[in-house]
Amino acid sequence: MKAYRGRPSIFSDELQKEKAAELEVVNLTLNFGGVMALSNINMSVKTGELFAVIGPNGAGKTSLLNCITGYYRPQKGKIYFNGEDITNVATHDLIKCGIGRTFQNIELFPGMTVLSNMLLARHIHCRYGFGPAALFAPSVKNEEVRHRRILEELIDFLEIQPIRNQLVGSLPYGLRKRVELGRALALEPKILILDEPFAGMTLEEKEDMVRFLIELNEGWGQTMVLVEHDMSIVMAISKRIMVLNFGEKLAEGNPEEIQNDPEVTRAYLGDDTTL
């Protein structure tokens, strides 16, 4: 088999050009029986941006992502994607709209191989119906081979060739995170939402991951929303940052502005006036 070098065909310039991803969150409020997880959040992500969301534990970052991807329903507020109101759209339809994500606690299928996991992400891109599938018509076979080829390009990009046929459950944590990124990419999302993709990784694994994200965002123009605790990475790769604290938006700006914001420092280091 020919080793593949370079950009996966699903991230070619022509395809990337069609991936407009304007995300608008307006006055979003979410509470869990008294616990204010999000209150009046406004946020806007533009096509091609790498937008980071940071904040201390329990700030509401994951809740925000869950609202955007349809896992939680906000009590108030609206979410628009490319001008369309997606506040109450079901998760599986949001995937078709082009919103792909990874999870903080990794939601892979541990009993399946890396390849089978990634193949699932091609579900919405399979262009055949139930009848031809039941008879395994030639068109179905060609389609399956096409997807297999696309996945191989992604596998090469993420440098996971040696583990493609291994069960995900047997992989170390850092590699699982990488596989989950691969699976999210196989969805061909217009906007890629990553919830703590660096958590639990070794330094080397983090370096690889940074390389992939920079290539995706700066090289190929992939729009991204990143939730991450590792400040050095966030400051280095994101264009804009939003800070959440106790469900409220504390600040928003470029990395420099955020680093010099006294409110942010206080939220992270504790309120020293009360001492």
């Binding site: 079901a90 599986h92 995937i95 299928f109 699932l120 579900h123």
Partner: peptide, 13 residues
């Protein structure tokens, strides 16, 4: 195997 993740793959459960 995991209906939450299946939903996240665009599969209408």
């Amino acid at each position: 195997d995991n209906d939450r993740a299946a939903e996240g793959m665009g599969i209408p459960i």
